[in-house]
Amino acid sequence: MAALKDSTSVGLALLPLGLALGVVITRAGLPWWCAPLFAAVVYAGSFEFLLVGLTVAATPLATIALTAFLVNVRHVFYALSFPLHRVRGRLAKGYSTFALTDEAYAMTTGGQAQSWSSARILSLQGIFQLYWVGGATTGALLGSLIPDRITGLDFAMTALFAILATDAVAERRNDLPTPVLALFSALAARLFFPGQLLLVAFSLFTAALLARHLATGKRSHHA
């Protein structure tokens, strides 16, 4: 029950986002069942939007694999802070890593989640995926009812990350350098490696945090 309450805000936000994905899938000319298939099996929001364009263009599977790797390689960094050690049981751990989306990561690494039990983390992830699959399927089935001149639904994903960023930054209000370093990492990656924005930005940001950690460590050592 607690998980249902935790998941309402971000979980309900996944509904319109899933709807948008479903609409994008059928508008691109893919069969409707691609919506539940992508949403349930791949379950990586931003990549699913990309996968629509890739499959419509009949992109070779090797290219799809490479794109999946490059877009989702950021998840490697989530292992540093996602509380998998609090999830009990092999199957449960397996599902928990499978459903480790950006939204699940944001919700389970915040201050309020420090005491969450295994069941609470798992049910949060399960409810997120239900919202996502339900939204995408509904969007694919009802998408034809939306007139073609209505565009811009995909902004739902930008809005969701804007909200998650606002919450995460507000929670560390005395730590302005962290979001600033992240922003500069993203801008540098956008300018110099636009094709690899996420990978380069995450690497730069991690390197910058490490440098800052070393610098503050040295300073307190001398003091």
Partner: peptide
């Protein structure tokens, strides 16, 4: 520190 920065980067990506 990573969660806040990660969300800022994902927003920039969008």
């Amino acid at each position: 520190r990573m969660p806040a920065g990660v969300m800022v980067i994902l927003l920039a990506y969008c």
